[in-house]
């Protein structure tokens, strides 16, 4: 599978329940929205109705939290069928999930749990990504997750693990810049070295979010504005890779939509400043759907 550039959508925000009314009443200027797949794939009520309306007016990416690509349990066929049905209906620009595992022995821990960075884990995950991409009929992006533990038997740094998985499987990388920062603090590595270790042709999207300092570690809460140090990392990523679709995540203590849109505007301004061109948010863009296999 050839690596390809991913669509450049500009700067968007997550589609959250708290903003449904605001969005459908005003259809605000916004480059694109990212919807959490699980909030829509099992719902044929208001959530799906809202998503359909949003999709008619904006590019939409589907971002999952339950694929559990790294679990040793078999891939969940029911999950994949429901995801595929949603993908076929919504025709998202991007389909993504996380490079992690979420459960074992049939029990779901509902978290994005860290994998050991080993050759065994790479082989396991690569094989499953290929199955998922084949089933969905499109390439997916996998996101680096924030973590609070690391395994003593890991043999690679996180960025090398992520890069190797992407290169061997053909999937893209959704690089969460905030997660790079959080992990760099928690596990004491240089976040800029992380960026240097990621192959440019694999990066299809950025996430930006806020986090919360705890007692001795940073917690990826998505409950605050992006901090300056993460904006600096974002600038470095743009200098390295050029303009790439960027999304502001905000999931706890969700502010009114205009405040969220301001964060997206800030990302847009930084991207324009570094990469040139004037990205403008739009309500009437209909790029083609997710990259096909």
């Amino acid at each position: 599978m050839n690596a390809q550039r991913w669509p450049q959508l500009g700067c968007g925000v997550g589609l959250r329940t708290e903003h449904y009314d605001s969005i459908i009443q005003q259809w605000p200027a916004m480059d694109w929205f990212e919807a959490i797949s699980e909030n829509f794939m099992d719902s044929w009520g208001r959530p799906r109705h809202i998503l359909e309306q949003v999709r008619q007016r904006y590019p939409v990416a589907l971002h999952g939290v339950s694929l559990s690509i790294g679990s040793v349990d078999p891939l969940d066929e029911r999950y994949l069928k429901h995801l595929k049905a949603l993908v076929e209906q919504i025709e998202p620009i991007i389909v993504s999930d996380h490079l992690c595992w979420s459960g074992v022995d049939g029990k779901n821990l509902h978290d994005l749990l860290p994998l050991p960075f080993t050759e065994e884990a790479i082989r396991h995950v690569v094989s499953r990504i290929q199955q998922v991409q084949e089933f969905l009929g499109c390439r997916i992006l996998l996101e680096n997750v924030s973590t609070y533990v690391t395994y003593a038997h890991s043999t690679l740094p996180e960025w090398e693990f992520l890069a190797t998985v992407a290169q061997r499987s053909g999937c893209g990388i959704l690089l969460d810049i905030n997660n790079v920062y959080v992990n760099a603090f928690n596990h004491q590595f240089d976040p800029y070295e992380y960026l240097r270790g990621i192959p440019s042709e694999r990066v299809g999207q950025f996430h930006l979010a806020g986090h919360t300092p705890m007692d001795g570690y940073l917690f990826d809460t998505h409950s605050r504005p992006v901090i300056d140090a993460v904006w600096d990392l974002y600038r470095e990523a743009l200098r390295k890779w050029g303009a790439i679709s960027t999304l502001i995540e905000w999931d706890e203590d969700v502010p009114p939509f205009p405040q969220l849109a301001e964060e997206a505007q800030k990302a847009r301004a930084i991207s324009n400043q570094i990469c040139g061109g004037a990205q403008t948010s739009s309500t009437a863009r209909h790029p083609s759907s997710a990259a096909r296999l």
Binding site: L113, Y148, V149, T150, Y151, A152, H187, Q188, G216, Y217
Partner: peptide, 26 residues
């Protein structure tokens, strides 16, 4: 399974972040 220490904290202590997260999410 051996976890690396996180700064001056034993790695296993940090698993409480996930245990509390599971409880809170449910």
């Amino acid at each position: 399974v051996r976890l690396n220490p996180q700064r001056n904290i034993p790695g296993i202590s940090r698993l409480s972040v996930y245990a509390h997260g599971y409880q809170a999410r449910l």
